[in-house]
């Protein structure tokens, strides 16, 4: 039994939450494909619309295809005061994409995020849920190089 089916049976026994099922799919696929939502709907006997309205509410549960690495840059006040906008501009230039887009090779997606609680080491970003802090241009270039 794969991990998702395992979680589905746990959900049916009231031992796990719907949001955890979504997260499991996002962990493996980086987003929730329509087929998976449909699969959940049939398995859990929950209307597709309800699943979609719930999943699409959360910023960390994308419902459209994303790159292998989802870069989420924080542009809230503390990060903004510490130069997050120039980091964002640089990322756009380096990756040749705009906010909300994915690189042609399917490697990187670029997004903004609300505060990620790294205000004491701003500017900061998350790449696939891992925080990267005290960013400057050299550091960002190095991070990108390592991921490429």
């Amino acid at each position: 039994m794969n991990k998702l089916d395992n979680l589905i049976s746990q959900y049916k026994e009231g031992k796990c939450e719907l949001i955890t099922l979504f997260e499991e799919i996002v962990n493996s696929k980086k987003y929730i494909p329509f087929e998976k939502l449909n699969y959940l709907s049939k398995k859990l006997d929950i209307p597709l619309a309800k699943l979609y309205t719930t999943a699409s509410f959360y910023s960390l549960i994308p419902t459209a295809k994303k790159g292998k690495y989802i870069i989420r840059i924080c542009n809230n006040l503390s990060c903004n005061l510490n130069g997050s906008e120039s980091i964002l501009e640089m990322l756009k230039k380096e990756l040749k994409i705009n906010l909300g887009e994915t690189t042609k090779d399917g490697k990187f997606s670029l997004e903004l995020t609300s505060c990620i609680g790294c205000c004491d080491s701003a500017p900061a970003m998350l790449i696939n849920n891992k925080p990267y802090v005290k960013l400057d241009k050299t550091k960002v270039r190095k991070i990108l190089r390592e991921l490429k």
């Binding site: 503390s78 609300s114 790294c118 205000c119």
Partner: peptide, 11 residues
């Protein structure tokens, strides 16, 4: 679920 901008004390 500490989401308030500029708040990271729970972390």
């Amino acid at each position: 679920d500490e989401g308030e901008p500029g708040t990271f004390k729970d972390k």
